[in-house]
């Protein structure tokens, strides 16, 4: 980023190539609709480009980038919601109350008629996407940064402009909410219906 700030065109291209997939992956879930993800990602890169001269080394570049991404996504939601009341940022999206049921019915449709059937990846993916969509904006952002960017609480806090303590609480709510939403999809012993992501020799055995 320092090279970009100093006017290195090739460095900006490199930066775009390095972060574009990660950014789009995040914005697919943060944008008002997935098909806006690329447009918003371009908007993020443009903001980075326009602000390049003001970039101060110190924080990780990715932290700065995802902060901008969060703002851009937030603005996109705000623009979309101007005609209606904006839900509280941390609250589940409208329809969230019914979401668990919706996912449950998806799970039933997918597996109920054939209990032994292993759900395929596409079906699982649809359910997970639906569940993420039901989280509040801030919960979703924190969760995605945690899962896909591997950010620790301090980095998420910096990205989202919150205290580490608040992030801890936010992530806990997000994870519990996600678990509840995906409950129909997780067997009683905690394993996912299709292929348990966690083996019996996982972290618990080490405890």
């Amino acid at each position: 980023m320092l090279q970009v700030r100093d006017g290195d065109a090739a460095a900006f291209e490199q930066l775009v190539r390095r972060y574009q997939v990660r950014l789009v992956r995040l914005l697919v879930h943060l944008a008002p609709s997935p098909d806006q993800a690329e447009d918003l990602a371009q908007e993020v890169f443009m903001r980075v480009f326009r602000a390049r001269e003001r970039y101060e080394p110190g924080a990780k570049f990715s932290t700065w980038l995802f902060t901008i991404a969060g703002n851009v996504a937030h603005n996109a939601h705000r623009s979309r919601s101007r005609r209606k009341e904006v839900p509280e940022a941390d609250a589940p999206r409208p329809g969230g109350e019914k979401s668990s049921g919706a996912i449950e019915s998806m799970a039933t449709e997918a597996s109920g008629l054939m209990p032994a059937r292993m759900l395929d990846r596409r079906e699982r993916s649809a359910m997970v996407r639906e569940a993420i969509g039901q989280l509040g904006d801030r919960q979703r952002m924190a969760l995605l940064l945690n899962r896909f960017e591997g950010m620790n609480y301090a980095e998420i806090a910096e990205t989202m402009g919150m205290s580490t303590k608040a992030v801890k609480s936010l992530l806990a709510r997000a994870r519990v909410h996600l678990r509840n939403l995906l409950a129909p999809y997780i067997e009683g012993d905690g394993a996912a219906l299709p292929q348990a992501s966690m083996s019996s020799s996982g972290e618990l055995d080490a405890v």
Binding site: Q20, V128, I186, M198
Partner: peptide
């Protein structure tokens, strides 16, 4: 375990893809 499994299900989300046209137009 439930918290962990539900979190790991996020790994089932499809990978994002970006074509070269996106890079160029950016």
């Amino acid at each position: 375990k439930e918290l962990q499994v539900s979190f790991e299900l996020l790994g089932d989300l499809p990978a994002a893809t970006v074509d070269d046209q996106f890079t160029r137009s950016t």
